[in-house]
């Protein structure tokens, strides 16, 4: 019986390990907010590298020209929702 289990493990073990590693990777992605980032990209705003934007504004590469066509949102509303 033990010999049979070992033979099966040798054959199916790598596949089982691959499945486990995939589950761990998906779990990590979800817990680190990967899904949230994806959702944001389709809900009307994007998380950007704000430090890089500010740095390039200070160096003159980009501008802090105030845009037209916007208003300040009411405070109670949830971030990222339209």
């Amino acid at each position: 019986m033990t010999a049979l289990v070992l033979r099966h493990w040798r054959r199916d073990g790598p596949l089982a390990l691959l499945l486990a590693a995939t589950l761990v990777a998906v779990g990590g992605f979800v817990s680190r907010g990967g899904l949230r980032d994806l959702a944001e990209a389709t809900q009307g705003w994007r998380r950007i590298d704000t430090a890089a934007v500010l740095q390039r504004i200070s160096s003159g590469d980009l501008q802090d020209h105030e845009a037209l066509w916007y208003h300040v949102a009411p405070q109670a509303a949830g971030v990222g929702r339209r």
């Binding site: 990209a41 009307g44 705003w45 994007r46 950007i48 971030v79 339209r82």
Partner: peptide, 11 residues
């Protein structure tokens, strides 16, 4: 009609 938090950009 992107609702943009501080530090974020529109779509």
């Amino acid at each position: 009609a992107c609702r943009i938090p501080e530090g974020g950009s529109g779509d």
